[in-house]
Design a protein around this nucleic acid. Sequence first.
DNA 1: TAGTGGTCTAGACCACATT
DNA 2: ATGTGGTCTAGACCACTAT
Lengths: 246, 246
Amino acid sequence: MTRRHEQIAEALREAIADGRHPVGGALPSEAELAERHGVSRGTVRQAVSALQAEGMIGSRQGARRVVLSTAPSQSFAELRSFAQWARAGGHTPGGRVLESVRCAARVEEAALLQLAPQSQVLRVLRVRTLDGEPVLLERTVYAGWIADAVQRLPDDCESVTQSLYDDTGLVFAHGEHHIDAVAAGTVDSQRLGVRRGSPLLRVRRTTTTPEGRPVESSDDRYRPGSVVFTVRNSTQANPLARLGRD
Amino acid sequence: MTRRHEQIAEALREAIADGRHPVGGALPSEAELAERHGVSRGTVRQAVSALQAEGMIGSRQGARRVVLSTAPSQSFAELRSFAQWARAGGHTPGGRVLESVRCAARVEEAALLQLAPQSQVLRVLRVRTLDGEPVLLERTVYAGWIADAVQRLPDDCESVTQSLYDDTGLVFAHGEHHIDAVAAGTVDSQRLGVRRGSPLLRVRRTTTTPEGRPVESSDDRYRPGSVVFTVRNSTQANPLARLGRD
DNA sequence: TAGTGGTCTAGACCACATT
DNA sequence: ATGTGGTCTAGACCACTAT
């Protein structure tokens, strides 16, 4: 990365991670960082605002910035992609397509994907495994214009996100996630190996391209104990979300 | 708000909310906004980066910014405070303290609150209602230094956050939330009026002051159907979280 | 090729926290 | 009183998108 502000942000993340700036301690002033890195104050502010958005530091006018956490928050990619998240945590992702059918979109699906009513969509049921164990059941609806590319993927495709990018250049850029809890239904219990009625963490998400065009909408159900969703937030900065192992 | 960048951000939020910039459409260029508002480009960039952090718009180098969503995301305050969230959604919050005991911190509690082992803490069990219905059971551990102020609050205190601020000037500034699903235990089922073993959405959170000093740590269990957690995120911008009614 | 957003500079002034 | 972060300006150059 040649961008100066990214370099400075990375240097600060490392300094925080290895304890040179302990939790509860203060960061150097903007002026000092600017001089040390030979950049203007604006560039330093760009760097620290990234850490602030990640929830690692907090700041108040008039006082030095404070270290809040040593853990760097994870990226959108890791929130979006099961495979990328799994690998980031040192686990082995796997998966298998159980069903894949084309049909007309239901009313609410067409609305979520911003499609005309009755448009063709692709409905996929997929189980995902972590180190061989099933932990997630995905019911995904893909917009018709990407359906062919999705169906060309192998049934045990490890990373759908990566494969779609490689094959078609498609980038997932934005997502909205609704999280709640539901009782396992018959299909859920069979596929995830839990009792019917036992609690599952449900994430309903819709993902779009950089231009804001919806690509997919999914109902994902996680086996409890396997996955925790973490959100860090702040009055001042922008919160950040990540998916983590319990 | 006298800050120019906030004014511009608010003007853009309104323009998006009332459809002058529809979802999928483009925003005016930075240069145009700068001229229109009589400010420099830097101030415009500050304004749009706020909307970006809220997930309302996306941007790509070389192309105009795109509107992703009309819904303004909610603030940290609403994520943190049940009462503030409820009122923001047009509901009436209520609640009652069921138990309140002082005791020595457990090992993991002391660690979460950054206290010495065996420090005094205050353990509170509180049920929260929305329009009279119980929807949330909170098991909160407060650090000893704030325990007196918490115990002085009335049992049916509507907003603990607001009252603590009024009484002691305490501000909650940062939070970390871990979300998963659990089966209702005996206490949960009695207090929330659900069957034992039925799914609950659990949020374990720790909140700190602006200086990063932990104040409280809580295990919150939501009755399903009453509450959904929403996270919006992006490759480029910073994700944002909010709590919303189903 | 023209327009747009991303990066960076070098200043200025203000509000707030600390001492 | 001094230092610090928050706001704002007026420029410059570059990388990328669109046409």
